[in-house]
Simulated assay, not measured.
Amino acid sequence: MSQPAALRSRAEATAAGVPALLAAAEHLAGTVLLGEHGRRRAGLGDDFWQYRPVRPGDETRLIDWRRSARGDETFLREREWQIAQSVTVWLDGAASMRFASSDKLTTKADRAQLLALAVSILLVRGGERVGLAGTGLPPRRGEAQVLRLAEAFLREGEADYGVPETRAMLPHARALFISDFMGDFAAVEAALHKAADRGVRGILLQILDPAEEAFPFTGRTLFQSVGGSLSHETLKARDLKARYLERLAERKDALEALARLTGWRYSAHHTGESAQAALLWLWHAFDGAR
């Protein structure tokens, strides 16, 4: 197939999948109570939030003299923060995400796409701007942006393992990285340190298949990456289990430690678990990433 024809074929396949992904994400997002997420922060706005004692550096014009007259302390009237924040999403589209150990399970990519779009819907409806990491889709609000995100989330990459993207991240914004994080850890480490240098705080969500946690292999087994660049055959797969599980635990511990060091949050989610539970965790985790 020629390059233009292959590109058109991939584009048509992506377009065909958008309605189904949107419907599933809308349904999932509907299970979460939206509330007032994203706005309870002091700043510019019209709605009263709270009184607080005056601190050095506060502007005199912000003092509430009526409230201050009730006692000996001077109080400032804070208003609710109404400037929408920006959230940048990096969704791993590499080949490793297309793995599913059973026909009864969704692929890691399908679950990642669903969660990324569902939380984007909630954020947009909460008045925040959501965009993609990189320069392709800057953060915006509105239903049209949700459609753009759905189309972008369905695109697949050629590499075996994904590399986090940090280009064009707005300073002091928030971010969401969703991946199996099975590739080069140094790339993840570099991306989070770069984000932290810009004041960006966010969430790492690791998506794993149950077989990647349990390693249920015995006897002769051929292990091959989804993209086909890596392969290893063994006659005694069971002998590899302990070392594999040890390496996986080390990777998860390293991700959690990196998140803690850079002010991010980390969690692992398995495709055999409830997508709703993962979305609820994501939703509440964003409160801690402000």
Rank of each mutant, 00 (worst) to 15 (best):
A13I: 06
P53Q: 10
R251I: 07
E158S: 03
E212C: 08
L282K: 02
D64W: 09
D197K: 09
L154C: 01
D239Y: 05
E250Q: 14
Q113P: 02
R55Q: 14
H27S: 08
D180V: 03
V200C: 04
V163K: 09
A29E: 02
T262M: 13
L255M: 05
A168N: 05
K108C: 02
G199K: 01
D160R: 02
L240F: 03
A94W: 04
G272Y: 01
Q145R: 07
R247G: 12
G30P: 02
A6K: 10
A214V: 04
I178V: 04
L114N: 05
H232L: 09
A190Q: 15
S274C: 08
A285M: 13
Q276W: 12
W65Y: 14
Q82S: 10
R265D: 09
W65R: 14
L115Y: 03
P210K: 00
E151I: 06
E156T: 06
G288Y: 09
I178G: 04
A257L: 11
A254L: 07
L204C: 04
V89S: 02
L76S: 04
T271N: 07
G93H: 05
T218Y: 10
P19C: 01
S120E: 04
E73C: 14
R220L: 06
D184A: 11
A275V: 05
T218D: 11
L170N: 03
S179R: 05
T88K: 01
A42M: 07
F75W: 08
E151M: 08
P138H: 11
T271F: 03
F99W: 07
S86W: 01
A112C: 06
R111Q: 13
S101H: 01
E143D: 07
S231V: 05
A190C: 14
H27T: 08
G263M: 10
R290C: 05
A13E: 07
G183S: 12
M169T: 12
E78I: 03
E26R: 07
A16W: 02
L149E: 01
E189Y: 08
L192S: 02
P138F: 12
L62W: 07
L122W: 09
G228K: 01
P19T: 04
R39P: 03
W65M: 15
Q3E: 06
A159P: 00
D209G: 06
A254V: 08
R77M: 09
E156R: 11
A249F: 10
W90E: 06
R40L: 14
A69W: 09
Q3R: 09
E212V: 04
F185C: 14
R79N: 15
E273F: 12
H172Y: 15
L28R: 00
R243F: 12
E151S: 13
L154K: 01
K252G: 02
E250P: 03
L34F: 06
L261W: 00
A25P: 00
G272C: 01
V119N: 11
A24Y: 00
R247M: 15
D184K: 12
A20W: 00
W283L: 10
D209Q: 04
G45V: 08
I83A: 15
T271W: 02
Q82H: 08
R98G: 05
S68Q: 09
F177C: 13
